[in-house]
Amino acid sequence: MKKFLGLFILVSLLVVLVGPYVPYWVLMIGVALASFLIGSGNFSSFLSCGLSFGLTWLVLSLYISIITDSELPQRMSKLMGLENESLILIGTGVLGFIVGSFSGLTGAIFRSLFQRKNSKSALS
């Protein structure tokens, strides 16, 4: 659980602090690296990185949406054929989850390549 939380916080910091300076695919490498270093289990890394990445994107979007009071999210929703504005927020979060989770899983499995078979359970 500790590693789950640690990974969660690390990924979240990565997205907030490094995110503005690099494209999202660099963050994906960063997440994989974090997951590799922390060494949580496969499923745990998948979930932790996914939730962290997705929630951070969701909160960032929501924050921008609230402080700017812009019509843009609504306009973009319509442009993408979505019914209402909240769907684009959720969409951003889901996309973040997918991107984060698979990056995290990649890092975790990569680490497991260097470990003896069955030394760890899937969930640690």
């Binding site: 997205v15 995110g19 503005p20 494209p23 999202y24 695919w25 994107w57 960032l60 979007s61 921008i64 949406s65 402080i67 700017t68 812009s70 843009l72 999210p73 973009m76 969409g91 951003t92 996309l95 991107v99």
Partner: peptide
């Protein structure tokens, strides 16, 4: 989609009015 939805670089960043 990824580039466009990324809150740090995508369309969300165009939500700011000039006086902000």
């Amino acid at each position: 989609i990824g580039k466009l939805m990324d809150p740090n670089h995508g369309f969300w960043q165009n939500s700011y009015s000039e006086d902000m």
